[in-house]
Design a protein around this nucleic acid. Structure first.
Lengths: 204, 204
DNA sequence: CTCTGTGAATGCTTTCACAGCG
DNA sequence: CGCTGTGAAAGCATTCACAGAG
């Protein structure tokens, strides 16, 4: 499909928000309401949805559960996806147990770290392994996505290893932009840069 | 200044990357090299810099340390900024000690949580307080930025409280988009949505 | 030559405006 | 009416192309 990244990102957020609406029992939602929850405009929401061929009801808006279902199937967010985390420092081990992931269909099924020491100390119900066993574990468990929480110096090396093992999606929390093969999708989340951005916008 | 968010974000990343270059002792860097480290193009980098009135040297590129200094002052990234974290669960307490922040001029000077229990259990060298004392602590310490790591249900309420206390910048890790007064800058980092985005781009 | 600096051109995204529908 | 759906217009961001400088 030829959706822009912006559109995909918004659609994913809509998908997430629909889960919340579903719980309230509300049946219909208008593009304006979705827009409000997203920080977008109603036209943008309508256009985004129409790009997927999704259509709502005059005077009522979109039907929550069927919209969620359609988004789920069109964006392939319906099934469960397996992910692993590389780097079990403070952040990595916090993410190991981040419940939101599991709720949303993303299963963290393995953690990796270089330090055997760390592996021994960690308290979690998820299995942890030394990086050496990455290839075997990833193949065996069918892991599709990797989350990088190692220091910047090692991020590229870890990304290479992950893609070498067949991982096609990478969420990189290190401050270093990693480069990956064409077919691999990678997203960077650099906390420090987010603070810089805020500081820059604040001025003064 | 009238820079676009994209430009500001890239400039902040350049600023961060210059720190890394500085350590290697290299003196000059070309727009193409910066672009490589950023995943952008050399024209974009040159244009971004020229929008700030920053200029390089023919045949040599930009002088690393003076570029860093200029960016630091133009984007107001030079000084130290104080921040607090609200919500000391796994993620929040991991961020309390996230060294990268401190290295980059962002000082986490306080953590807040509703649960006295949690406050007692936490092991960190940063001072932690019950949310009730937010106003006093923020004023007293001159905190400018707030990091929200509470569950989505409470994110808006925390954002309101923070802005009510005079905080002007918010980094929100909850999956809920918070709405803030006009003058306040807020950035959302939704991990789950990042995974969704990756999954959607992967397709299959 | 090899790099920067930048107006002009291109290509995206968002916004608008309004027809259509219940 | 109050909503969606969408071509057309406007607004932005990126890319290009090339002059300028050492």
């Amino acid at each position: 499909m030829d959706l822009s990244n912006n559109t995909i990102e918004r659609l994913c957020r809509i998908f997430g928000h629909l889960g919340a609406i579903e719980k309230t029992g509300v049946e219909f939602v208008s593009s304006a309401e979705l827009a409000g929850a997203l920080g977008a405009t109603s036209y943008t929401v309508r256009k985004d949805l129409s790009l997927l061929g999704i259509t709502g009801f005059t005077r009522k808006g979109y039907e929550v559960s069927s919209l969620k279902k359609e988004l789920g199937s069109k964006l392939r967010l319906a099934g469960r996806r397996k992910a692993c985390i590389v780097g079990l420092g403070r952040l990595g081990s916090a993410l190991l147990d981040y419940e939101k992931f599991q709720e949303d269909g993303f299963e963290i099924v393995a953690g990796f770290d270089r330090s055997v020491n760390k592996l021994e100390r960690i308290r979690t119900h998820i299995e942890v392994y030394p990086v050496g066993s990455m290839k075997d574990v990833i193949k065996e468990k069918g892991i599709e996505m990797g989350i990088i929480t190692v220091p910047g110096e090692h991020a590229q090396e870890v990304a290479d290893r992950l893609t070498g093992c067949g991982v096609r999606g990478i969420l990189n929390f290190s401050p270093v932009e990693v480069s990956v093969p064409d077919k691999v999708v990678s997203v960077n989340m650099d906390f420090t840069n987010a603070l810089r951005f805020i500081a820059a916008k604040l001025g003064g």
